[in-house]
Design a protein around this nucleic acid. Structure first.
Lengths: 158, 158
DNA sequence: AATGGGAATGTTACATCATAACATGCCGAC
DNA sequence: GTCGGCATGTTATGATGTAACATTCCCATT
């Protein structure tokens, strides 16, 4: 799979993610309603993270809802079900682009130039941090790992 | 040094951090003005992270400023100079409690019960993530690692 | 087909977090 | 003593996020 930073056939990413979403919904009996599905599609259009209000603008333009809770509820649904992630550093949301079947614990690479966000597997990091925390008696429930920097393409251009 | 989660003589933490701050200011010619120093003291009172507006309330009560920019400016100053950290997950700020002399890259352990925040060394994690990112051509500039969970003390009580 | 219950959505109103922009004051270098 | 740079004061607004309650939709049961 190409990274978010490379030129690639993005419709393939997007399509694959939607298929996974439909499968997940079927498997777990989730209701992937029109608003929720549309929000996922919007997030999938690019590898950028979108703010809730950016998503809302899009929804609003399409007559799917005008108030913040509409966007936040759909986004929360997607995040809870692993179909999207919240990027803390940006107060924004990105579609999940990994093809995990189980729960996964990604680290995010955020390019400060092109703003694309890449998901990287962080299983190793997670377990390393977990044991370090263990030693202090701390039980990790949720882990956020976000790197801000510059991707190869943007570095080449500068 | 005790962790943030243990009972300890906190005045020692606080005092040590202030001494380090004064030394740093002297060494780098920084201006640790009354507002800035007071904000640092306020953050140092506990191991909790404080929101900018919580800090502002305190400042305001002491006649040191009533408007948000006062708090944000002081906090930004402290963060830029490594005397405090921003905790993304909480939109809040915590005094730096490590005795680093150089720049350091901490990971944060945030107890969702008592809300204390502990700084853990993340040099190893950072370099592991760095090489994983390198392989993708990504150059990491800033890294955020935050674990939300439960500390030993709070786990024992529940 | 009626109906009742749970989930999703619509809507209002507000809470919380953050910054732009410009005015004023402080202080040391010259 | 005045000029320049930094810190602070102040106004106003922008950006992000949520509580609370009304309404609608859908489907399982009757």
């Amino acid at each position: 799979m190409p990274t978010a930073f490379e030129r690639h056939d993005h419709s393939a990413c997007s399509h694959a993610a939607l298929v996974r979403a439909d499968e997940l919904a079927a498997a777990r009996g989730l209701r992937l309603t029109p608003v929720r599905r549309r929000v996922l599609e919007i997030l999938l259009e690019r590898h950028r993270a979108l703010g809730a209000y950016e998503v809302l603008e899009r929804l609003s333009a399409e007559g799917l809802g005008k108030q913040p809770p509409v966007a936040y509820r759909a986004l929360d649904f997607l995040v809870e079900n692993g179909l999207a992630h919240r990027v803390q550093r940006l107060n924004a949301f990105a579609a999940c682009q990994s093809d995990h079947s189980d729960g996964h614990a990604p680290a995010f690479l955020i390019c400060r130039v092109c703003q694309n966000v890449e998901e990287m597997d962080a299983a190793t990091l997670r377990s390393a941090l977990g044991s370090q925390a263990d030693a202090l008696g701390f039980e990790v429930e949720r882990l956020t790992i976000e790197a801000l920097g510059r991707c190869a393409g943007c570095a080449a251009e500068e």
